[in-house]
Design a protein around this nucleic acid. Structure first.
Length: 493
RNA sequence: GGGCCGCUAGCUCAAUGGCAGAGCAGUGGGCUUUUAACCCAUUGGUUGAGGGUUCGAGUCCCUCGCGGCCCA
């Protein structure tokens, strides 16, 4: 017979057609999901459907395991209970990987397994290719990324991880909805990018004959809505940063941002801790998470670390006194001869680089890092007590920044100056500065209420909850290089 | 960008420089209580791509591709 599994499966599809059965059905009415059916008493009639994961064939009896998202359920086919031409369908024409519908009655086997004793079978979709091996599943990382559907079908923990992700975002929506936040959507195509220090992707709008950037953050649009009187808004959506690939950075990632009128950053420190602790209680049954070989404890208050103090303690450089790029570069160069200063052409870039190299790698347990240097974020409000620093915080866990938040700058004169300062950094060769947004300043001049916003990296948060080390494992289809061409089947005729 | 590891049948994996293999899946046969069913038989390979060394290369060398990990 055929040496090619695909051909033999397609031949079975033809045989089904020859018997008047459509191998690619349009619908099937189920009475229960598989997990629900498995909880029923014996003798209850059911119609169920799923993908065939395994078949155990005896001469006159066949067991098959069906799978849907809720779980698996065994179905049985007995020759004595079925017309010969019906029994032949599972015996000869159904393969592992096919979708089938089954009608029958619940019973319990000798081994105490709930099973559907089939009275009818409906082929729903013939799989022309086999599933990965039932025992080990799909192991090849590249194949898991490129063919996530196979990863999901054959590796339970993958499905569970992605279901968790969906449930967590759903929980977050409920949490915010209950606190009078309104979910909104703002543009992904933006004429100027801001809200973060990052290089954007750019594209061209043909009809408008105008270049656009993919947003690196929704920040200024959400604050336009605060000006519009929406009071509390949030958005969960994709942002894009045209940067290097590594385990903790995706070029296309999901951000939650919210803004609350009359909040300052201290209010957001309270709210984010409540949210994260609520998520952990809901999904982990406590505030501790096992991550790789350590335990992350989100319980109680989180320590607060002052940005300047942390840099000073770790490097001996007092950013409060070292205020120019030249001087900072000199000090860093003296202290760390290996430090590649050319990568950090502006003062904020170098400060940020110093922090990321020297301080952040030590922040493992949940920590509030507070009062960043003013130059770092042109959209954040200066501290009234110390204009060198911002009313700002980040939550750092596992050396990852998962949250960034601040009291918003609402003074349009200061805003213009701060954006112009960014232009200077850009002129110095820093291409991760924010762009001047006249339209945003116009908006602010019309009156922006006091407010504070917060951003949470959903991918990183879910990765921590899932105990996976790479963000690619919490995204269904991570961006990869173009695959080598797959040998196309040329036997279709 | 640099270093290291990997790429072998649909899947999971073997193979001192010496005949490319196993399990699962497939195919044929047997089997009415299995669940990684079992038993017998059996098909299936451009060893990621291209060069080179060698009597002989999956294996050694070079270039390239894709993925992973670490570093920058």
């Amino acid at each position: 017979m055929s040496a090619n599994e695909r051909e033999s499966r397609q031949a079975k599809a033809e045989e089904l057609r020859a018997r008047g059965l459509n191998p690619y059905h349009d619908r099937f009415a189920t009475t229960h999901g598989l997990a629900a059916a498995g909880a029923l008493d014996d003798d209850v009639a059911v119609e169920v459907a799923g993908r065939v994961l395994a078949m155990r064939k005896f001469g006159k009896l066949i067991f098959a395991t069906l799978k849907d998202r809720s779980g698996t359920l065994q179905v049985s086919f007995e020759r004595d209970q079925l017309e010969p031409e019906v029994f032949e369908i599972p015996k000869k024409l159904i393969d592992i990987g096919d979708f089938i519908g089954v009608g029958g009655v619940m019973w319990t086997t000798k081994k105490e397994e709930k099973t559907v004793r089939s009275a009818s079978i409906t082929p729903l979709s013939k799989a022309a290719r086999p599933l990965p091996e039932k025992w080990h599943g799909l192991q090849d990382r590249e194949a898991c990324y490129r063919q996530r559907y196979l990863d999901l079908v054959s590796n339970d923990e993958t499905l569970e991880r992605f279901v968790l992700r969906s449930e967590v975002t759903s929980f977050i929506r409920r949490f915010l909805d209950e606190r009078a936040f309104l979910e909104v959507e703002t543009p992904i195509l933006q004429g100027a990018t801001s809200g973060a220090a990052a290089r954007p992707f750019s594209t061209h709008h043909n009809a408008l004959d105008r270049d656009f950037f993919l947003r690196i953050s929704p920040e200024t649009y959400l604050k336009r809505l605060i000006v519009g009187g929406l009071d509390r808004v949030y958005e969960i959506g994709k942002c894009f940063r045209n940067e290097g690939i590594d385990a903790s950075h995706l070029q296309e990632f999901t951000m939650l941002e919210w803004y609350a009128t009359y909040f300052n950053y201290r209010d957001n420190m309270i709210l984010i801790r409540e949210l994260i602790q609520a998520v952990l209680e809901e999904f982990k049954g406590g505030t501790k998470v096992r991550y790789e070989d350590q335990e992350l404890d989100f319980g109680g208050e989180w320590p607060e670390v002052d940005y300047f103090d942390a840099v000073n303690e770790r490097t001996g450089i007092d950013l409060g006194r070292v205020e120019s790029h030249d001087e900072l570069a000199r000090r860093v160069g003296e202290k760390y001869p290996g430090f590649d200063l050319s990568q950090y052409p502006s003062y904020p870039a170098l400060v940020d680089g110093l922090y990321k190299k020297m301080v952040r790698p030590e922040l493992v347990q949940p920590t509030f890092l507070v009062h960043h240097p003013t130059e770092l974020v042109p959209l954040a409000r200066r501290s009234d007590e110390n204009p060198r620093v911002l009313d700002m915080f980040q939550v750092v866990v596992n050396t990852w920044e998962i949250v960034k938040a601040y009291s918003e700058l609402i003074d349009p004169v200061d805003q213009r100056n701060r954006m112009m300062e960014q232009q200077d950094y850009r002129d110095q060769g820093d291409d991760e500065t924010m762009m001047l947004e006249e339209d945003y300043i116009l908006c602010m001049e019309h009156g922006m209420p006091p407010n504070s916003g917060l951003g949470l990296g959903i991918d990183r948060f879910v990765a921590l909850l899932s105990n996976v080390e790479s963000l690619r494992d919490v995204v269904y289809f991570p961006t990869l290089r173009e695959a080598a061409p797959i040998a196309a089947a040329e036997d279709d005729d």
